[in-house]
Structures are given as structure tokens and as C-alpha cells.
Design a protein around this nucleic acid. Structure first.
Length: 341
DNA sequence: AAACCGGGGAC
DNA sequence: GTCCCAGGTTT
């Protein structure tokens, strides 16, 4: 049986000694914290930090009003490469809602925060505990791993019953006096100590509370119910270059909504295209083999052809936001041949 | 409840 | 190759 106050004390003590410093931990501004939380949904901290997404975003959109007024294309450009682009669109929607419904002032009630677009139970709890010191539980991937091991919860965690149980346990264990440090602590424990494969039980500050301590089946927790089947697909795209411009079309459907892409081969009617390369990438449950067809420099168009779909964009200027594979394809096939465009 | 939504790093 | 990351929304 866990003595809750001892559990909290041990975690917080460890965190205050070993916790890392992140930009979003140096602020109490709810907007800045919301930005970090949206960026970090299903995204590693290193990705956000290494590519400077967070810093660049706050430089471009330092406050809610600026974000609310921005063009969506600008918002998506700042998110380019991060993935899950609805997060960026929701962040701007949230900013616009705050301007309209809350007179530009970030809402201070948990329920209001929870009602913002793109904000679910985790993000609302994170924003309110970090910015306002509200004693709210949060359950992210780290907390799921820590709690399922500590409590030896062996049922699947990715069911409504599993989620309900873990949220209840998180609420029972959460800290009233230092909720921000506690929530940071339990997540960081999952990140530094309670690792996916081989947890470092020898270094764990709460191993004495843990039902899975040094147990071989700790690595088997948390249990997941649904393995995701991968479907293989091929995609034939056209990389058309002419007079220093590239032909792009808009994404259709919900995937990468609002971004641009290389046109599908079937969307255009161009002769004499050659297979110039292949890139394999994964998107959600698909593994895509992208076959790239182009007009090599020696067959370059004499002038920019008008196609039924697509628009020519100047490569010397900033392109609109593109999905990562298309950006990669363009970079790969323009850097060495740029003199021949 | 299940499907969908990106991209990349760790293993 | 597989797993999963400071999850949320839609169907």
C-alpha cells in the first residue's frame, strides 16, 4: 500500500535534483505552456527542442492576439515538419476563441481550458497545473508506463476501462501542494528512469513503492491491446521544375490538411517524364513507397506549362508548408542540379 | 469502440 | 523492421 504523501515527496525531491530545464518550465504564461503542450502531443521533447520549433513559434507568434491574426498558411509553415497539423490549426482556433469569447485573456477555469480546440484531459490538466498550480492529474504516455508498473496493472491500458482506471489512480496519487513539480516529476521519471525497454530500477527514487521493481515483467508493462497493421502503398508523384520553379498542388482530404504537395502523376498530363528517384516513408498506418518522376534538366520545359491542377512556386523564395517527404524530394533533386533549372 | 492524424528517434 | 513519443478529434 502506497503512502501517498511519501510517494509524492520522493518524486518531487528527485525531480528538484534531477529534473531538466526546459523553456516551458521557465514560464507561468498559460499561452506559452499551451504552445509547448500542443507541440509535445505525440512528439518527443528532443524533436521540438532540436529543431527550435518552440522558440521559433514564440518568436513569430509571441502572444495570443498575434496568433489569432496570422494567416493559416503562416501558422502551418511554422509547424512544417512537426506533423499532426491539426494541432497547429487548433492552436490558432484556440487563440481566436480566446480573443472572441474571453476578450483575449487566457481562461482561468479548468473547464474553459478543456473546451479549447485541441485540448483534451491531458493538455487541460497540464496547462492548469503548470500555469495555475491547480492540483489536477495528468496521464500521458510516461505516466501510463510508470503507474501500470507501480500498480502492476496488467490489463490493457488502451481501452476505456484501462484509461479510466489509470486516471483514477493518477488522481488519487496527485499532489495538492506542488502539483506542477509533481506532474513534471512523474513524467520525467518515465522519460529518464522508467524506460520502455529496460527500466533503471536501481536509480529509481520510488522503487520502494513499485510492484514491478527489478521484475522481468516490468518491461512487459504497460500492456497494449491493439497491434497496428501496416499497409503498404505506392505513390507516384511528379517533380516538375522549370525556370527555377516547382509545380505544387494542395493536399486533398484530411491528411496534412492545409499543406501543399507534389502533384500525383495521374493529376497532370505531362509526357517524357522519367523515374528519377524513390523515397520510402511512413504516415500513420501506411508505409508508402513514393516514386518520383521528373523532367530531367536536359528535357526541361521551354516554358512553364499550365496544368489542370497545381501552381508554380519560386524555389528561391520561401515555399508554403509541405509534407516532409515532398520537401525532402524537392531538396534532394534541386540542390545539385540548381544550375540547370 | 475504432479509426484517423506525421514524423522521427530509439531499439 | 517495431515501438512509441508531455494526445485529441471524428466517425
Amino acid at each position: 500500500m502506497i503512502v501517498v504523501s511519501d510517494w509524492q515527496k520522493a518524486l518531487i525531491r528527485w525531480f528538484r535534483r534531477h529534473g531538466k530545464s526546459y523553456p516551458w518550465r521557465e514560464t507561468k504564461d498559460p499561452y506559452k505552456i499551451l504552445v509547448s503542450e500542443l507541440m509535445l502531443q505525440q512528439t518527443r521533447i528532443r524533436t521540438v527542442l532540436d529543431k527550435r520549433f518552440y522558440e521559433n513559434w514564440l518568436e513569430k507568434f509571441p502572444d495570443i492576439e498575434t496568433l489569432a491574426r496570422a494567416d493559416e498558411s503562416e501558422v502551418l509553415k511554422a509547424w512544417e515538419g512537426l506533423g499532426y497539423y491539426n494541432r497547429a490549426r487548433n492552436l490558432q482556433k484556440a487563440a481566436r476563441e480566446i480573443v472572441e469569447k474571453h476578450h483575449g485573456k487566457f481562461p482561468e477555469k479548468h473547464e474553459q481550458v478543456l473546451n479549447l480546440p485541441g485540448v483534451g484531459p491531458y493538455t487541460a490538466g497540464a496547462v492548469c497545473s503548470f500555469a495555475y498550480d491547480m492540483p489536477l492529474p495528468i496521464v500521458d504516455g510516461n505516466v501510463v508506463r510508470v503507474l501500470s508498473r507501480v500498480l502492476q496493472y496488467k490489463k490493457p491500458v488502451d481501452t476505456s476501462a484501462g484509461r479510466k482506471t489509470l486516471w483514477q489512480e493518477a488522481e488519487r496519487l496527485t499532489c495538492q501542494s506542488s502539483p506542477a513539480d509533481y506532474n513534471s516529476a512523474i513524467m520525467e521519471l518515465g522519460q529518464q528512469i522508467c524506460l520502455k525497454g529496460t527500466p533503471k530500477c536501481g536509480q529509481c527514487p520510488v522503487s520502494s513503492f513499485c510492484g514491478s521493481k527489478d521484475s522481468p515483467d516490468a518491461a512487459a508493462l504497460p500492456q497494449k491491446s491493439k497491434p497496428v497493421p501496416v499497409t503498404r502503398k505506392t505513390e507516384e508523384v511528379a517533380l516538375l521544375l522549370c525556370e527555377g520553379r516547382v509545380l505544387l498542388t494542395t493536399e486533398t482530404g484530411s491528411r496534412r490538411k492545409g499543406l501543399l504537395r507534389l502533384p500525383l502523376l495521374e493529376e497532370i498530363d505531362a509526357n517524357d517524364l522519367e523515374l528519377i528517384g524513390q523515397i520510402t516513408y511512413s504516415i500513420t498506418r501506411y508505409q508508402v513507397e513514393m516514386r518520383i518522376f521528373g523532367n530531367p534538366y536536359y528535357k526541361k520545359f521551354q516554358k512553364r506549362t499550365h496544368f489542370a491542377t497545381g501552381e508554380w512556386f519560386d524555389l528561391t523564395e520561401e515555399l508554403p508548408a509541405l509534407g516532409a517527404p515532398y520537401l525532402k524530394a524537392i531538396e534532394q533533386f534541386t540542390e545539385s542540379k540548381s544550375g540547370n533549372l
